[in-house]
């Protein structure tokens, strides 16, 4: 357990918009977002679980705590981070919140942002600010804690975060069906409207894999009802999706993430796709401009998740009134422009 917050305050005080800081934890998501600039401020030393009480369903940890350490502590109490954030190896909890990424269970249980209960940050002034807390229901003040999720470190240095945790499901089982894409999407949307214990889905190569989680009896009843084939090594399969070690993610070709309404019809894109989240998250290897156009038409947006050429911009451009709100929020939390400038959008 180390508290480096005083050192961070010194670094932030010494920084300026000409000499900005690049907040970095395990470096597992260096690939994500726009180009990194500025001097690295390494958060890994500010680490450790500050409080964890299983009966309160909350864990509080310093930003540099490896996700693996948190998951091990939770597993010892038969609990887990239900949103299954990718660890990408050395990922830290601060980095997970800053990136805001969620794993296979997202469509069923919610995203990382849904589990953020409170944060303590250092603003760009710098000031130490605490928002939210450790209780489930809290509507005092604006929900700044959730604002931090996915802000890519542009608003402040997350010192500490409190996350809601859940008990592990009693039972879990996976099923596989041979289905072409259109039929798989129809089935996923129909099942999602029924009281079935679905906890993840993946369609790829004309095969749909489902995961069921819940009470023993509920999982058994759903298996009887849905049919399908068993899946060998199911846990490894879902981990390979969460960590993007599945064969679909191999290679250097640009990886686009399309975030869409779950019932968007099959997309007119050449080449392979991998579909998660009941149809809401679709991965495609191809160029950003095409993906962005297709996603916008379908009522969603596209992220250039990985790729060597980011000239098309990583995130879908924002309408002017929304971008103005972004700029004013950035100015409110980081008035001197020292944190991760340009990582989310140019000049932000």
């Amino acid at each position: 357990m180390n508290d480096l917050s005083e050192q961070f305050v010194e670094r932030i005080t010494a920084a300026s918009s000409d000499q900005p800081l690049c907040i970095r934890g395990g470096g597992s998501k260096d690939f994500y977002g726009e180009a990194r600039r500025g001097e690295v401020i390494d958060t890994r030393g500010h680490a450790g679980i500050v409080a964890y009480e299983p009966t309160e369903l909350v864990i509080t940890a310093r930003c540099g705590t490896p996700l693996a350490e948190i998951e091990a502590a939770l597993a010892a109490q038969n609990q887990f981070l239900a949103f299954e954030p990718p660890t990408f190896g050395a990922g830290t909890v601060g980095g997970a919140v800053a990136a805001g990424l969620s794993g296979p269970r997202r469509a069923s249980v919610g995203a990382l942002r849904d589990y953020v209960l409170g944060v303590t940050i250092l603003s760009g002034v710098p000031r130490r600010l605490t928002f939210g807390g450790t209780v489930m229901k809290n509507v005092a003040g604006y929900d700044v804690s959730r604002l931090m999720a996915g802000s890519l470190g542009t608003l402040g240095l997350i010192l500490e975060v409190s996350l809601k945790v859940l008990p592990r499901p009693v039972a879990e089982a996976s099923l596989r069906f041979d289905l072409p894409q259109a039929k798989a999407l129809d089935a996923l949307n129909a099942w999602a409207g029924q009281p079935l214990p679905l906890s993840a889905s993946c369609w790829c190569d004309d095969a749909l894999t489902l995961r069921l989680s819940g009470a023993e009896a509920a999982v058994a009843a759903a298996m009887r009802r849905l049919g399908g084939d068993g899946v060998t090594d199911a846990a490894a399969f879902w981990t390979s999706l969460r960590e993007q070690r599945h064969a679909f993610f191999a290679g250097d070709e640009t990886l686009m993430r399309l975030s869409l309404p779950s019932n968007a019809p099959p997309l007119a894109l050449p080449g392979a796709q991998l579909i998660e989240w009941g149809g809401s998250q679709r991965w495609w290897r191809g160029d950003a401009a095409t993906a962005r156009e297709v996603a916008a038409k379908a009522g969603g947006h596209a992220v250039l998740f990985r790729g060597a050429d980011k000239s098309a911009g990583v995130f879908q451009p924002l309408p002017a009134p929304i971008l103005n709100i972004h700029r004013r929020l950035k100015a409110a939390f980081d008035p001197r422009g020292v944190f991760n400038t340009g990582r989310l959008y140019p000049n932000l």
Binding site: R146, G150, S259, G299, H301, P319, I325
Partner: peptide
């Protein structure tokens, strides 16, 4: 007129919907 969030499960930029 501003739109926060969409019919997908997330939106680009800060989570203004949560705010």
């Amino acid at each position: 007129a501003i739109e926060l969030g969409n019919h997908a499960l997330d939106a680009p930029g800060y989570d203004l919907l949560a705010v």
